[in-house]
């Protein structure tokens, strides 16, 4: 049983590396923000998997909940901040 969860965690880390592509390459800042949001959602699951593997679920659930809160606030704040950047539309002319 632990083996299944361990391999799920490794696969989830690989998927997070795949999501990092859009964060690094993405033509506009909002594309990077989508990547950050996706990685945050996956981190919430990964934290609980780490908690199950270390037999400390009760501690890691609180961390995961706080991380989900923080992810939401971070995305909301940066979306509110970047909506004034007029240079944003110039960055996306290449398609």
């Amino acid at each position: 049983m632990e083996q299944v969860i361990l391999y799920s965690g490794i696969a989830l880390a690989l998927i997070m590396a795949l999501s990092l592509y859009r964060t690094l390459v993405g033509p506009t800042i909002l594309d990077r923000l989508i990547g950050v949001n996706a990685i945050g959602s996956e981190t919430t699951v990964l934290l609980i998997i780490i908690g199950v593997l270390y037999k400390k679920v009760d501690m890691f659930i609180d961390i995961a909940l706080a991380y989900a809160l923080l992810n939401f606030i971070a995305v909301l704040a940066s979306a509110r901040y970047f909506h004034k950047r007029k240079g944003l539309s110039d960055e996306s002319n290449d398609y």
Partner: peptide, 20 residues
């Protein structure tokens, strides 16, 4: 509860910045 709000914040930022 929060995911629609975050998605709407991102798409609204794109609309206001004038992305086509």
């Amino acid at each position: 509860i929060t995911s629609p709000t975050a998605t709407h914040a991102i798409i609204d930022a794109g609309m206001r910045a004038g992305l086509k």
